[in-house]
């Protein structure tokens, strides 16, 4: 798995570095810590220092001296690359990558571009409070990244133990990658999985034999020893349900191109969900 961790110098980024380290180390992932500077003329040393500090915390958060990542004994230098600057880390055979990168340009656009160009599977971004504002950025930066990134995005809000993942998983179209991302999240948190099924006046909603498709998803998880169950929600009540359920656990919403949830949710649901959710939100693609 490849993870892109977008950060700046604010608390909502710094406070989730240990959680990002936990996710990365447990999934044995290659990770890039990315920040963005506006000017392309010269490396912003303050931003470089912030990345170095975040990396130190990242490595010290992992038991066993940062393994499987390589901890250099000297501060990391940066070299210019086409998209900005990249840390020159040393390496050790068998270690996973923990890269530092600084891109230049518009923050939202550059995070999205890096996610796409680097073929990442997951973007992690912090948004610790409803009024969280990325420094010098629009209020809704995490929302915009979550809406536009080509891969899944985990917006980490409050850090607290989570025993439940609430999955809005489109039973007829969900991608294998999304099912797998849920598996990893459930494993990491040792959580139960509540799967949301939609009902309308004619029963369960969706294309084809929805009942069988939902049973397939449930069987997929129970066969893998995940404690999962289905909760039915009326289509009209979905938005209210989602904002209320976000108090109980991490919300995972599949928003792939063919997602029924993406069609049913009002246009700005992702924004509202991230803004109002009291827990972390995983947008699956």
């Amino acid at each position: 798995m490849r993870i892109l961790f977008a950060v700046d110098d604010q608390t909502y980024s710094g406070s989730i570095v240990p959680e990002a380290a936990r996710i990365s180390a447990n999934t044995w992932a290659d990770i890039t810590l990315l920040t963005v500077q506006s000017s392309s003329n010269k490396l912003d040393e303050n931003k470089a220092d912030i990345l170095r500090q975040h990396k130190d915390i990242f490595l010290s958060s992992i038991e066993g001296g940062g393994f499987p990542y390589y901890a250099s004994s000297t501060p990391e230098d940066f070299e210019q690359i086409s998209s900005g600057w990249q840390g020159c880390q040393g390496s050790r055979e068998g270690s996973k990558l923990c890269l530092l990168k600084i891109r230049s340009g518009d923050t939202v656009r550059e995070i999205i571009n890096e996610a796409s160009e680097g073929e990442y599977d997951l973007v992690i971004i912090g948004a610790s409070s409803p009024d969280c504002q990325w420094k010098n950025e629009s209020l809704d930066l995490p929302q915009k990244v979550a809406e536009e990134a080509a891969c899944s995005v985990l917006v980490i809000k409050r850090l607290r133990p989570t025993g439940k993942i609430i999955g809005c998983l489109d039973q007829s179209q969900i991608s294998q990658e999304s099912l797998e991302m849920i598996n990893q999240l459930v494993t990491l948190h040792q959580a139960d999985l509540k799967i949301i099924g939609l009902t309308g006046p004619k029963g369960l909603s969706g294309k084809g034999n929805v009942e069988a498709q939902m049973a397939d998803i449930l069987n997929y998880y129970t066969a893998r020893d995940i404690n999962a169950w289905i909760t039915l929600v009326e289509k009209q009540a979905l938005e209210d349900f989602v904002s209320s359920a976000s108090k109980d656990g991490i919300m995972a919403v599949w928003m792939g191109k063919k997602s029924m949830f993406a069609k049913l949710f009002s246009q700005n649901l992702v924004e509202k969900l991230i803004e109002n959710s009291q827990s972390s939100v995983l947008i699956l693609r």
């Binding site: 992932a29 599977d121 797998e180």
Partner: peptide, 17 residues
């Protein structure tokens, strides 16, 4: 790794990886 695995990949992963 203690049993001699060459590498360990968590799903999902891209084909390139």
């Amino acid at each position: 790794f203690s049993k001699g695995v060459f590498d360990f990949l968590a799903k999902p992963f891209k084909l390139g990886e």
